[in-house]
Design a binder for these strands. Structure first.
Lengths: 414, 414
DNA sequence: AACTTCATTTTCGGGCCTCGAAGAAATTCG
DNA sequence: CGAATTTCTTCGAGGCCCGAAAATGAAGTT
């Protein structure tokens, strides 16, 4: 059943991983500093570092800027990631755009291609072709990276198939159904990972705001859809061990408003931009939702509500109530201390807040533990990219580089 | 931050723990068998076993019954837990009873005391006194165990305080508020753990039904309360990393029926015995709930519904709907493959099932992944006890015995 | 009765990794 | 220039695991 035997190999892997992860979250550091952070002895750090240097995974930085107060003693030689050690390609798929980025091993953006996506995009090209094409472009434009490209990671919206080779369902037209991750892996010869956008939001906010790094946060995206990712004490939990949830399609009211997904009564049908719009304009809630809401139209609606417009306010009230009861139901299973609203809807938090808090107050756990802190962060792009990047680079650290054999087996590249 | 250094000590701990856990779930086994199950080499198993034998944690069994077909070769000497190596005390607190059990290290029940609990019990005695008293009784009645009693574990209902020293809220009158776990630990000088009943149900069913052991199961208790525990691929997840949820007090309908907890619209207010009773007798849903429902009255109601009685059927329908929508909302965050109904309500699963399935069918995830399998297991006592016991003994294995120093440091007891 | 067969268990030597202590290196301060 | 100070490396000891070989114990065979 469980094969978790520990031997000297796993010890090395664990401790190498510890050093890489300290480097990942703390930036270039001295060996002494690493020894302090990881808890390893100086001797071990030195030994491991010699391997890592020989394998060209890290490199010594000659800066030695000595910005610290104490100016005595032998100056520390900082060690940081060797930028050329690996590259990763990151694809962020959205309803209306693909953003393909090439990032080096130290986390520096090397190249980026953005392409518009329309509802007909995946009718003309299959997702597999589309992604393969963009990956090829990245490779061609940075030839030296093509050699050492190690991984591809894709951020998507929807429900993953059980083997993570594609999507079972997605709000992005034409994306579900094909196993594009599998195809892309075959075409490129690289491992391809699929991540839900909501999960990456949770991951990304951890890296974005140090105060939230170790607390428990539920990150809720409000915009063209509604999504949630959970990060509890630094661990990501949730559906399929994936940390993402189908929060947007959690039922709010039985037989309620029609959602884009085809079901009725989803939170999204009340709280996504199209839902708020539908309510505000008193369109019957069983009317099929608009395919896309322009940003400025949503912004205008916020301003109308802020100015006191009755109908617009009503739309945001219903949305806040849907989110609030959804959160209250989520709180029966998780206990985050903070709730972070991101995306276009974050701008309107003040409009949502009263209804959210009212809904939360009517739940037992909030009555006993108090309300979680509700914060807003308008930008959702940066956390998603950062989450995707950190997740992918950390996986590279642990899976590929921590496990390398030690000793004299130096790998050399021209 | 993270001090997870791996050294030879952690290797030994890991591998000793592996062997103990194999013994825990597989019963007495030969060294060869353990080597196969754990993945360790024969040499290592022998070495570890020598330590464990010297420390009197395990013992060789002289049975050698050779029940297997092959009768050639050196007969295996089975190794099993040394029963006297440790004892644990398990306290199961219920609305109307305390069950205190003494169990030896191999998991055999040695002694048991049952005491009735009434709503006034904890008005006369403090919880701390009450539990200390029962623990003393167990110790006195089995003097040889008093020496090696290592842990106390308590199964409770309600919301744990953040430091797990007591309860913030509980349906058991007078139990919340005091930090009885902390007091009991001081009085007895033993570590005391508090577990939520729902979590133990999830833990217990894993050990009870081998088919469910490694699948993802949501265990729902339906009876005097409604509770849920989650066990996903053998890992227990949920609130406070505790694996238990406040499912029963998840909101079903805003401003709905009055619940025992004082809030309105909880699932429990519709699906616990008192809720079903209230609906069936057309009592207004804001009427304060009955403090306790006799088992035979609930049974009679089931029979009336089975016989086709309109009002009773209506009660079970509403209950099924509340459970169904609750599950549908839970499924937006977790993806168990099985749902197990336990407790008195399991008897009535056929009455609940149509409404549960209807509610689940209206959710996106069920539409895409299909409905989870819904099963029933009428007895909830056995899983709780078993979960509490296995959880506690496994913790003892890993925390206390896997970490013991090896070598010549033999601990001896008269 | 001695020998073969076979499965289980133990012993032995080699390898790997971490650690503490002592030594080497690189600066600043007096 | 030497003392002080901080960082980094080297070295031997101690642990643990593993594979291979040897020992053990029982049943079948000659």
């Amino acid at each position: 059943m469980t094969r978790n035997v520990s031997d000297s190999d796993s010890v090395r892997r664990q401790n190498r991983g510890l050093i890489l992860s300290a480097l990942r979250s703390g930036g270039p550091q001295s060996r002494t500093g690493l020894a302090g952070v990881t808890g390893l002895s100086h001797a071990s750090v030195t030994a491991i570092m010699q391997d890592l240097l020989a394998q060209r995974i890290v490199e010594e930085l000659t800066s030695s800027e000595r910005t610290d107060g104490r100016m005595r003693g032998r100056p520390a030689t900082l060690v940081g990631f060797h930028r050329g050690a690996a590259y990763v390609a990151l694809l962020e798929v959205d309803v209306n755009r693909l953003r393909a980025s090439l990032v080096d091993y130290s986390g520096v953006l090397v190249d980026r291609i953005e392409t518009a996506i329309s509802p007909s995009t995946f009718a003309q090209t299959t997702p597999s072709e589309f992604f393969t094409l963009h990956l090829e472009s990245l490779r061609e434009r940075t030839p030296q990276a093509a050699q050492t490209l190690r991984r591809v990671a894709i951020s998507v919206q929807g429900i993953l198939s059980s083997d993570s080779s594609g999507l079972k369902w997605s709000p992005i037209a034409g994306l579900a159904g094909s196993s594009f991750a599998h195809d892309l892996a075959e075409n490129s010869g690289l491992p391809v990972s699929l991540y839900k956008r909501g999960r990456l939001l949770a991951e990304g906010t951890r890296w974005l705001d140090p105060a939230l790094h170790d607390s428990s946060v539920a990150t809720v995206f409000v915009g063209s859809t509604v999504a949630m990712g959970l990060s509890l004490h630094g661990h990501i939990t949730g559906r399929s061990e994936g940390g993402a949830t189908e929060f947007g399609h959690m039922n709010h009211v039985p037989n309620g408003a029609l959602c884009r997904c085809g079901m009725r009564g989803c939170i999204e049908a009340y709280a996504a931009d199209y839902g708020i719009l539908r309510t505000s304009y008193s369109v019957p809630e069983t009317t099929p939702p608009a395919p896309a809401v322009p940003a400025q139209q949503f912004e205008a609606l916020i301003q109308r509500a802020e100015a006191g417009d009755r109908d617009a306010t009503h739309g945001f009230n219903l949305a806040g109530r849907a989110i609030g009861y959804g959160l209250s139901r989520m709180l029966a299973m998780f206990d985050p201390t903070h709730i972070l609203i991101v995306g276009p809807g974050a701008r309107a938090l003040d409009l949502f807040r009263p209804e959210i808090e009212a809904a939360l107050s009517s739940s037992l756990v909030c009555n006993i533990n108090g309300l979680p802190k509700i914060l807003a962060h308008p930008d959702e792009r940066e956390p998603i990219f950062r989450g995707l990047m950190m997740k992918t680079l950390s996986a590279l650290d642990q899976t590929d580089f921590a496990a390398l054999e030690s000793g004299s087996s130096v790998q050399r590249r021209a």
